[in-house]
């Protein structure tokens, strides 16, 4: 089964995208200076996956920090998922935030307001 993976660094998140099972995981920190360059391979893979997506796609986002440069790229990722969802395959985005992190919860709610995909806000312990 085809997979797209990137190991995390102090400035970029770990990405695990299992195109065979339709599970995408983004975890860690996303604070690169050049976010477009970093997210391009993921966006390209999502585009490819969108041509024949699984009946259900699950996306787990668990970010500790992300910068505003990443916020646009994350929206681009979500827009690709929205297109898949609108195409008839179900997509769920699980947005994780640490229990004291109101800013991260609010950031998830901002995306939820923009993107027409079911969001689940998942609180995790610190």
């Amino acid at each position: 089964m085809e997979k797209f993976t990137l190991d995390g660094t102090p400035k970029t998140p770990t990405i695990n995208f299992d195109l065979g099972s339709g599970v995408l995981e983004i975890k860690g920190r996303s604070i690169p200076e050049n976010s477009i360059e970093f997210y391009k391979p993921l966006v390209d893979n999502l585009e490819k996956y969108g041509l024949s997506p699984k009946p259900a796609t699950t996306v787990n986002v668990q970010l500790e920090y992300f910068n505003t440069s990443s916020s646009k790229c994350i929206l681009d990722v979500f827009k690709k998922l929205e297109a898949i969802h609108k195409g008839g395959s179900s997509v769920t985005i699980n947005w994780h935030y640490e229990e004291d992190d109101e800013d991260m919860l609010e950031a998830g709610e901002d995306y939820q307001a923009i993107i027409s995909v079911p969001f689940k806000m998942v609180q995790v312990a610190e």
Binding site: I36, N67, T68, S69, S71, K72, L75, E106, D110, I114
Partner: peptide, 26 residues
Amino acid sequence: LKEYYKQILNNGEMSLKGGGGLGMVD
């Protein structure tokens, strides 16, 4: 500020350099 942030995020032009003005709002 919350509305302005969402507006720039969704409609604003993303520059190669950064978030296209999102930083100060954030």
